[in-house]
Amino acid sequence: MSKMHITTSINGDTTEFLAEADQTLLSALRDNLRLTGTKEGCGSGDCGACSVRVDGRVVCSCLMLAPEAQDRAIETIEGMADGDNLHPVQRRFLEEAALQCGFCTPGFLIAARDLLDRNPNPTETEIRFWLAGNLCRCTGYDKIVRAVQKAAEDVRG
């Protein structure tokens, strides 16, 4: 089976790559495009480490086929900071020590930024529900929730 030629937008840049039809977007990002910020925890939709935004919606890139990316707009963690300027949610994760090993962090950041884009004033319950698809095995969720609350304050200005 010959590979498929996919043209897509990744973090605003038109990107072309070759993919197997049954390859996941996660694998294409990491293995073909070397965008390794997006992580693979479970490969089955449970952990959220592979979260990316596709046409404005956060999805698990392990539950999307690479050829589906054709003509879509993909946003990964690599596009979150503006040069050296971290996004508020990234800065607050650092300041609030909301990470230990950091493996889950890109997924949490993608999901948390999406929440704040939609609702800059979420309640704690809303934050916890929104992040229910992201698992962290070391930091514990309280620090993460606190970092998102602080970032929300920053976003509201």
């Binding site: 939709g45 596709v54 956060v58 539950l63």
Partner: peptide, 9 residues
């Protein structure tokens, strides 16, 4: 059904 990520699909 599932998380917010799963709901997106």
């Amino acid at each position: 059904i599932g998380s917010m990520q799963v709901q997106g699909r």
